[in-house]
Design a protein around this nucleic acid. Structure first.
Lengths: 226, 226
DNA sequence: CTCCAAAAACTGTGATCACAGTTTGCGGGG
DNA sequence: CCCCGCAAACTGTGATCACAGTTTTTGGAG
């Protein structure tokens, strides 16, 4: 109304291939698509109700992020299988980059962040109580990345996102074998305490411990499952 | 010849989009495409003599690897600009993952690897002497990754590859400002000495020092150039 | 029932076209 | 000379089709 020039260059409309990317990514993170199974462009297209074209874009991106695999022999798509070696490398990488992000975010922690984290942690606990695996995975992911985003480290944040995407399928396997209540979220409280006083090293330690415990459980599950 | 069934399912023919990927990747690593400049699918297609379709696939991959950027406003493509923050994050990440790869590769070092590394290091020196920037970049890249590949750590290797891709444009800027002879390759010799006796920690230190020196020069160049 | 070969279905890849939004270039008025 | 406005060129996106290779299904012979 009163706007002299309603500068609205748009570019708002989210591209279809981005929506497709998010959909597949979510399915991968929550483990809805099991490791080892094959997928195809047209089947995904039919399932999501779009043409194969945006699927192609999204899949290309996911392959680059190693969240999907492409068989070099017949060029067919599949979700990467779980191996002990892969898990070990992913664990080590996460254990380096995520605590670093937490430490960098600590100085920028404010009341709004704490509040948001508390809500997400409550959602985590709620999902654990209900045994809702998908909800737990989503809430846990959102908790970590709401924190990491405050680090203002775009490159490291992208690395963490890629690692989480790759390790998502492992998590589902853990839940399938040991049950969701095998994981405790106490470290989240520890992290929030550190953030309240902007204690970077405390946040680093808390997140490192949180990851370490989770990864240990995954490793045990993978070793037991072979 | 005694093979009962010469199983040869093929799948050899390299896809066009992979060739395109390599071409653009090489152009970025060697810095032939300057940071900040815009590119377009059709212009790349015309330059490489293919249809826009495989370009699209390759670009999608490079965007996922953060080697190319896509302006969220007008969705146009460009090479990411150099910022001190980006360089700092990339340095820190490289300084963690690459020495780790060197240390993991050390136990698997054999005479063939040493020989190959010596050749590549000679190529590095040769390129430095001639002032051939492209040749130096290529040889230096090949030296590092010939070593890293022996680590047998696919996930970490891919991370290192992605980081190198992102930092490539920075290197070219350094050469443009301080000259190629500003960089010494002595650390390569130090690394090879450690590899001869399969000294993992020695290899780790040598590669860390090599990177550290290079990144310092880049940082100085970036700070001086603003 | 077993085994093998032909056919049908499905796979990723690449090309071409249409479309809407953005940028650029050019011309004319002030 | 400056600046505004319109048109042409260019941008990424999505759909559709064709093709070659692979897998799966099918059907018939032994």
């Amino acid at each position: 109304m009163s706007g002299p020039k309603s500068r609205k260059p748009l570019a708002d409309s989210v591209a279809v291939h981005d929506q497709v990317y998010d959909a597949i990514r979510q399915a991968l993170i929550t483990g809805r698509i099991a490791p080892g199974v094959g997928v195809s462009l047209r089947s995904l297209a039919a399932e999501l109700g779009v043409s194969p074209m945006p699927i192609r874009d999204a899949v290309r991106r996911l392959v680059a992020e190693r969240a999907l695999e492409i068989n070099p022999a017949n060029k067919r798509l599949s979700v990467p299988s779980l191996t002990a070696g892969r898990l070990e490398q992913l664990s080590m990488a996460r254990l380096w980059v995520e605590p670093e992000l937490a430490a960098r975010a600590a100085p920028h922690a404010d009341a709004a962040l704490i509040k948001r984290l508390r809500e997400l942690d409550a959602a985590v606990d709620e999902a654990l109580k209900l045994g809702d695996v998908d909800a737990y995975m989503t809430a846990n992911h959102d908790f970590h990345f709401a924190l990491y985003q405050r680090a203002g480290a775009e490159v490291l944040l992208a690395m963490a996102g890629g690692l989480w995407l790759q390790i998502g399928p492992f998590m589902r396997v853990v839940f399938g074998r040991v049950g969701a209540d095998g994981l405790v979220a106490d470290r989240h409280a520890e992290a929030m305490e550190a953030l309240k006083v902007q204690d970077a090293e405390g946040a680093r330690r808390a997140i490192a411990a949180d990851l370490s415990e989770g990864m240990d459980k995954m490793r045990a599950a993978v070793e037991a499952g072979r």
